[in-house]
Computed example of a mutant assay.
Amino acid sequence: MNEFIFIFNSIILPIGIIVATGYVIQLKLRLDRSTLAKLSIHYVMPAFIFMSLYESSIDFSLLLNVMLFLILYAFLSFILCRLIARFMNIGKDRTVLFTNANLFYNAGNYGVPVNDLVFRSDPYAMSIQVMLVVFQNMFAFSYGIFSLSAKNVGRTKALLSYFRMPIFYGLALGLIFNYFHLPVPAPIETALEYIRNAMIGLVLFILGAQIAGIKFKRLRWSAFVGALARLVIGPALALVMLMLFNMEGVVAQVILIASAMPAGVNSSIIAQEYSDDPEYAAEIVMMSTLLSSVTVSSVIYIALAIF
């Protein structure tokens, strides 16, 4: 119990304070959330991803295995969510939203700060987390849009637009500079380091502001189940898979902790544009985020104890 309280106080509570600050300031000042999101996507995250990959000791075969693991994890999560939705007799549109909220967890705005605090800014642990972030972003804005926009046009354009985003080039250049041991000029490296240091506080603030912009009038039982599925079934599935694949150490810890993250705001944003019932996705995001303070602390404890 003492270790659980320590994890909550030293990791979850500081994150909650910054998220709550962003939430309150957004309610008071009505900041432009679109601009805040662009600031994260086009300024902070690319530099953070590049520097995290550039400075880490990357085993490229291991990273390939991690990506294959994530694909299988997403596939099995999809099947489980569809079975749960079918058992609960959820409508077709809400079944897609229920599934997406479980597939697209908050590996970035929430997961990255948790990783940074748990592993004390370890570049190796963060390089694994970066791969999770990239996978989640590509997955959300490819399958996430395809799954909801069958009646719309421009899906290919939406998918291809990801490859014009700075985050993609931060990933690609970070891997290239690392693999070929290319030096970064000192002034540029210093500038990128300053930007990276601003990332944690900024993305958590933005997360709070984004949550403040999510509106819903009720909480449906199936949405509550969706939140629990994301927070409990998600990490339980990851734990079983990690044991079956004999993965261990920091890699297993990072993946298990990341699998416990709440539903990503991306699932709600995509639903607002492509779904007839975006409020349902918002319910799952809000409930999973609120409950995650307890469940994430528990999964961190389990990950560090088992692996």
Rank of each mutant, 00 (worst) to 15 (best):
V133Y: 01
I211K: 00
N152V: 03
G208L: 04
A227M: 04
A303K: 05
V250E: 10
I71H: 05
R230S: 05
P46R: 08
G16R: 02
M286V: 13
P46N: 13
N178Y: 07
V296W: 00
A282S: 14
G234A: 05
S121Y: 12
P166I: 10
S293D: 00
L36F: 15
A101V: 00
N89S: 05
I79F: 11
F180M: 09
A263V: 00
M51H: 10
S121N: 14
L68V: 10
R33Y: 15
Y280W: 06
I41G: 03
A238K: 03
N2Y: 08
L192C: 06
C81E: 05
A281W: 02
D32F: 13
P46A: 12
V285A: 02
M51A: 13
L204P: 03
Y73P: 00
G226V: 00
S275N: 06
G91Y: 03
L244K: 11
A212N: 06
L231F: 01
L80F: 08
N178V: 14
I176H: 07
M67K: 06
F98R: 01
F139I: 04
L207E: 01
P14A: 09
V240L: 12
I269Q: 07
A223E: 01
I176D: 11
R86Y: 09
L239N: 05
F98E: 02
Q272I: 10
V19E: 02
V299N: 02
S259I: 03
D93T: 13
I269D: 01
A20V: 12
G174K: 06
V296K: 00
Y43A: 14
G226P: 00
W221C: 02
A85V: 03
I255C: 05
V153L: 05
H42R: 15
I211V: 14
Y179F: 14
R94N: 09
V285Q: 04
F75T: 10
L70K: 08
I79M: 13
I211A: 00
E248F: 12
S149I: 04
A191K: 07
E55G: 15
L76E: 06
L219E: 02
L83A: 10
S268Y: 15
L63C: 11
S61C: 14
I79C: 11
E273T: 09
G234D: 04
F135W: 14
L159Q: 06
F224A: 04
N266S: 14
I15K: 01
R120W: 10
